[in-house]
Design a protein around this nucleic acid. Structure first.
Length: 486
RNA sequence: CGGGGAGUGGCGCAGCUUGGUAGCGCGCAGCGUUCGGGACGCUGAGGCCGAGGGUUCAAGUCCCUCCUCCCCGACCA
């Protein structure tokens, strides 16, 4: 990415406002979230207020995902925030997995409740209960429902978007006639997540199956997309679970099949939270602030008129006209404020991550051009005013491509192959990213690697395994990627 | 949850050791000059010093409790 000729004074001032991403990553993250007005703190631990600019990004994430959910046959519904304790305890692994982080309501209206209500940490149980009422026949299947909602998990350490006590997400819950259908659904949604992450968010991911120990509590198989953050840690960015018949048995989700035999349904669940937003900030941002992929940028284009000289009014009129025309092909904002200078606006919009800036001044007006300044992937260039309907979308596409390519190069460069346990330990210690290994998949081997390296197995891909297990030396069955994780 | 750090106008900080009228920079408001990478001048507004208790003639400053945030670790689909 090219940066304009910088003057030392400005650089120093800038660094004062936003810490270096490379040197103070955590501080950098917090600073950009606050300064770009994505979110703010609230006096309850672990809770954030999502401000309009941040919420608009979330809405764009919602739209991108929702469009894909609808295209794959899903519909939206809404289930309640409160879950009776008794529901919650029906699935053994589920209750054990979530017990430590569930918030309970025990009083209401001034009286002790006869049965405590869980504030949902996820809704498999509530939805399972309802599916049992709704499903009678194989003709009722599949049920393909998604809900957009909030959930609460009593986390010990929190960070804006990445781990908050209350967070927004979507959770899809489906019920199927056969195991094969459920498995296909879980895999399909993993594919949807991958497509969204890589296309709209421009984040390359490793996609695959979760090892046993990392499965969702109560799931038969869990799938995940894992992204690599600049500090070398993995971020689980979306998960999809094949729940088999576990929840159907726990909640009596049964149907009469065409052979007149009553059977338990097969269910799935899958979710993406606003954590993905946090991941996107970390992956693409730089020392100047945010860099938003065009698909998820509240403003894809900002038009900055240079209001000076005798042609001032003409420049403003031209800028308005450009903003109007570009507004037809991209989300566009005209920044015609007179109280701040153009340079201030450049820095401000760069900090907020706007992918493309158009500058129009008296010189441009004379040449019937605008200066096009992409936030990433190239330097400023003048383009003819007449062709903006083509050049702007092209420039936005180039920004997306540059962001993805840059992140992909980083990901590829930070996958270290390890052929022994010692190499796994060494690679993890270097915080270089993912450590690729082959293993036999045995629990003992996994635990050994975990203990000695401090890293967890993030994802098992479908690559063919070759050679001996890094832990025990037996014939390896799978390719697994280890990393420290968020 | 353990270790460490912090909370003082909107933001960033000083003041606390040694108690005695709350300061600086930026920002903000008005006016004027400016405007192609964070402009400048003049004038001005704005703070029960995170909360509660205690010591004292007197607390931003000393003591106790609590809350929130940050960093490292542990924990965590």
């Amino acid at each position: 990415m090219s940066r304009p000729a910088a003057r030392p004074d400005d650089e120093r001032e800038f660094v004062k406002e936003i810490p270096s991403k490379a040197e103070h990553f955590s501080d950098w993250y917090t600073a950009v979230v606050l300064k770009a007005e994505l979110a703010d703190y609230y006096p309850v631990r672990g809770c954030i207020v999502v401000r309009p600019y941040g919420y608009t990004i979330w809405e764009l994430i919602q739209q991108g995902l929702d469009r894909r959910f609808k295209a794959t046959g899903h519909v939206n519904a809404y289930f309640p925030l409160f879950i009776p304790q008794s529901f919650f305890e029906r699935e053994k692994e589920h209750v054990e997995g979530f017990a430590p982080e569930v918030a309970w309501v025990t009083r209401g209206g001034g009286e002790e409740l006869s049965e405590p209500l869980a504030v949902r940490p996820t809704s498999e149980t509530a939805i399972g209960h309802m599916y049992a009422r709704w499903i009678r026949s194989y003709r009722d299947l599949p049920v393909l429902i998604n809900q957009w909602c909030n959930v609460v998990r009593w986390e010990k350490a929190t960070r804006p978007f990445l781990r908050t006590m209350e967070f927004l997400w979507q959770e899809g819950h489906t019920a199927h006639r056969t195991a094969e259908e459920a498995e296909a659904e879980a895999r399909q949604m993993l594919g949807v997540y991958r497509d969204f992450a890589e296309t709209d968010a421009a984040i390359p991911v490793l996609a695959g199956r979760k090892p046993e120990s990392e499965k969702f509590p109560g799931a038969e198989r869990s799938y995940t997309i894992e992204a690599l953050m600049p500090d070398g840690q993995a971020l689980q960015s979306g998960t999809s679970h094949n729940l088999g018949q576990n929840f159907a048995r726990a909640f009596d989700i049964k149907f009469l099949d065409s052979d007149n035999v009553e059977k338990h349904a097969y269910t799935t669940s899958w979710g993406v939270s606003w954590r993905l937003l946090g991941g996107m900030l970390m992956v693409h941002g730089d020392d100047r602030g945010l860099v938003l992929p065009p698909a998820l940028a509240p403003f894809q284009v900002v038009v900055v008129p240079i209001l000076t000289g005798p042609k001032r009014d003409d420049v403003l009129a031209a800028a308005r006209e450009v903003a109007r025309r570009v507004g037809a092909v991209a989300r566009t904002r005209l920044d015609d404020r007179v109280e701040v200078t153009p340079g201030w606006k450049y820095n401000d919009w760069e900090m907020r991550g706007v992918p493309l800036r158009l500058e129009i001044g008296p010189r441009d007006l004379a040449q019937q051009q605008v200066v096009l300044a992409p936030r990433a992937g190239g330097g400023k260039q003048g383009v003819p005013m007449s062709g903006l309907e083509q050049s702007v979308p092209e420039a936005l596409a180039a920004v997306r491509r540059a962001l993805f390519d840059q992140a992909k190069m980083y990901l590829d460069a930070h996958i270290v192959a390890a052929r022994s346990l010692a190499e796994v330990v060494e690679a993890v210690a270097g915080r270089r990213g993912f450590v690729r290994a082959v293993w036999c998949g045995a629990e003992a081997c996994e635990q050994a690697i975990r203990r000695q390296s401090g890293a967890s197995p993030r994802v098992i891909t479908e690559e063919a395994a070759d050679g001996p297990c890094v832990a025990c030396g037996a014939q390896a069955r799978e390719v697994v990627y280890f990393a420290r994780a968020y």
